[in-house]
Design a protein around this nucleic acid. Structure first.
Lengths: 195, 195
DNA sequence: CTTATAAATTGACCGCGGTCATATTTTTCT
DNA sequence: AGAAAAATATGACCGCGGTCAATTTATAAG
């Protein structure tokens, strides 16, 4: 079994993460360059890759943590009572993902990982998200608000599909259709969740 | 206005395209390297980029043409009479896109471009595809087969969303769930298109 | 035919993600 | 404490997409 990491390693990792987060917060994910990170952190390039595998590995850790934060908020808020309220709950997460194509691309790459590799933060996030959707839907089905002819799991997957769809659309028309994604998704939810 | 390209330029372009297509057919899109293409075509690197802008530009031309071929087939076939038959019509295109992540990623990047830049082949392909879906749906609504409470355009967009969803899922679970995408999409179509 | 002008091509060069044999530091063992 | 072993860090190096000032080739003008 692998030995616990030494203090030095944890410090190096923390340094790399904090430098990277600062760059992301000030310049966005697209501007993140590994060479900048290692230079500002005062470590060698190889060290970066021994910690995170590749650039996506770093992004996975940082973005995964942020996604988890949004999921915490969603779970803390009262359960939505309608498609419109579901769209409301999604707003912060959608705006976060919509702000940068790099975020969307990275999340999408993991958006179907429901099986193996559950160690990945992002995978856990997706499972949690789908589970949460299914919980919302299931409760609303019981109250008679949503269609009851379809399993909550399938409906939840569909919500995920629409979510990715409006995000993808948003990235394509650079300036046209400035409608926020949470608004764009509503027509789909109303048609998909209500019978 | 720009002058017509010279014969030499057309030959160079054709050579680059044929070499690239051969590599794609034998080794797949992921294995396509610009340096290989220019070497096999006997042309300098800069020439490649003066023709296609970037690597994606080349892929756009080649994959766009192939997608158009699939759309031709779909339009030639008799109009589908049910969600299951819609899934049938989608099968060749879905299998094509599902064969390589690079194809999926590239198509997705253009999948919402309905406004400007209509000169792009892929954009035209998407518009054509959505229009075709809407046509199918509209006809089936008139026959009473599909739900008539929702505009064909919105239903067609939803089909597109599910299509991308099952493809994304397919790429995530490397080996598990070997179900072909056309089969995976059916439950969604039945719930989305029928009331 | 010669010269000016535009089109097409060239290849040295750069940026940046990623690798790996080597060096340094920390831990373990006697 | 000192030696062996394991963990960590290093930086020269590579692959490959992409750039651009300079060169060659084709077309138009005199």
């Amino acid at each position: 079994m692998p030995r616990a990491p030494q203090k030095r390693r944890l410090e190096t990792r923390a340094k790399l993460l904090s430098v990277a987060e600062e760059i992301i917060d000030t310049q966005g994910c697209s501007a993140l360059r590994v060479e900048d990170v290692v230079e500002k952190a005062g470590v060698a390039k190889g060290t970066f890759f021994s910690h995170f595998g590749d650039k996506d590995g770093l992004l996975t850790v940082i973005l995964g943590a942020r996604v988890m934060g949004f999921l915490d908020e969603m779970e803390a808020a009262p359960r939505p009572q309608s498609p419109a309220e579901i769209a409301d709950r999604l707003t912060p997460l959608l705006n976060f993902v919509a702000q940068d194509r790099v975020i969307f691309d990275l999340l999408l790459r993991y958006s179907g990982t429901t099986g193996a590799e559950v160690d990945e933060v992002i995978t856990q996030g997706f499972i949690r998200q789908i589970t949460m959707f299914a919980g919302w839907i299931s409760a609303l089905q019981a109250e008679g608000t949503l269609r009851a002819d379809t399993a909550p799991a399938l409906l939840a997957e569909g919500v995920q599909a629409f979510l990715n769809h409006v995000l993808a659309i948003g990235f394509c028309m650079e300036h046209a259709d400035k409608r926020p994604p949470a608004e764009a998704i509503l027509p789909y939810l109303e048609r998909w969740l209500v019978r």
